[in-house]
Design a protein around this nucleic acid. Structure first.
Lengths: 142, 142
DNA sequence: AATAGATGTAATAATATGTGTTACAATGGA
DNA sequence: TCCATTGTAACACATATTATTACATCTATT
């Protein structure tokens, strides 16, 4: 079980957009060169980030920019933008209601796993793009 | 992105094994009836739990039992037994080393995501089979 | 207006993972 | 020996992920 590469890729994209703002036009081809994926993947991801209100993309001319300050964008925002499925865990359908374990497992285990998911969300919400950008700038080892 | 149903299924199996210990023989067919999956899925999962040292399965005669007290088995034990992949998050291969973001993203984002994973592990380790079994017994709503 | 470069999106393919099922050899008690 | 059961391989199928091609649409610039 592994998370898809979408969260890291989307984060990479956002960091590049901010990092190169004013220096160069951050087109899908440019971003694809940094991330090392196909430009269409970048455009799809940018589409999700745009739908989530995190970026504005200049149709026709090209390039993207953040809609708000990096300190006001968290990894939870990014996660929600690119992962449509809110249910992190899921259960076997129709456990046996005649069995005391079967008729309670979903509720008993579900409430506990839900809390774990909430912790993960809280952790993601505590990490801002600004923090990541500072780390990239300050800890850069060329 | 969703976790597979393996952790909930394996937990269900372990709870049933303990719950019905002494009452009936917990064969793969019996367990399959409670969980509502194919008996072979149960046997595969029991195989993983056995490899992890959590259960003993009686070959030939059938039935399984826990190797230690439910209070000494946590969801982290179960998670590790059924999820072979330790890397929860993963990154796009070969980001551009010429780009300041590309050459730092893995380290900067990776260390932070690693902490989130560790939190999840800690949360899983805090939940014991005993706690779940008590909840199933006490909060049973037939 | 024409052009060139860019985006938005659909369609397709390749691959991996998850789950269900059949089949059968091996096990061990009755 | 017989029978229920386990262990495991093989296969099928669905779904998710990622890569790629193709093309209509957009917009600044010439």
């Amino acid at each position: 079980m592994q998370f898809s590469v979408r969260l890291p890729v989307a984060t990479h994209i956002l960091l590049c957009i901010e990092k190169f703002q004013g220096e160069c036009k951050t087109t899908s081809t440019f971003l694809a060169g940094s991330v090392n994926v196909h430009p269409v993947i970048i455009r799809k991801t940018l589409g999700q980030l745009r739908t989530a209100g995190l970026v504005e993309v200049a149709a026709g001319v090209g390039g993207a920019k953040l809609t708000r300050s990096p300190k006001d964008i968290t990894l939870l925002d990014v996660f929600r933008a690119v992962e449509e499925n809110e249910d992190l865990f899921h259960f076997q359908e129709n456990p046996n209601p005649q069995c005391p374990v079967g008729r309670n497992i979903h509720r008993v285990l579900g409430t506990r796993l839900e809390k774990i998911k909430q912790h993960m969300m809280d952790d993601l919400a505590a990490i801002t793009l600004e923090e990541l950008l500072n780390a990239v700038n300050e800890e850069d080892v060329p």
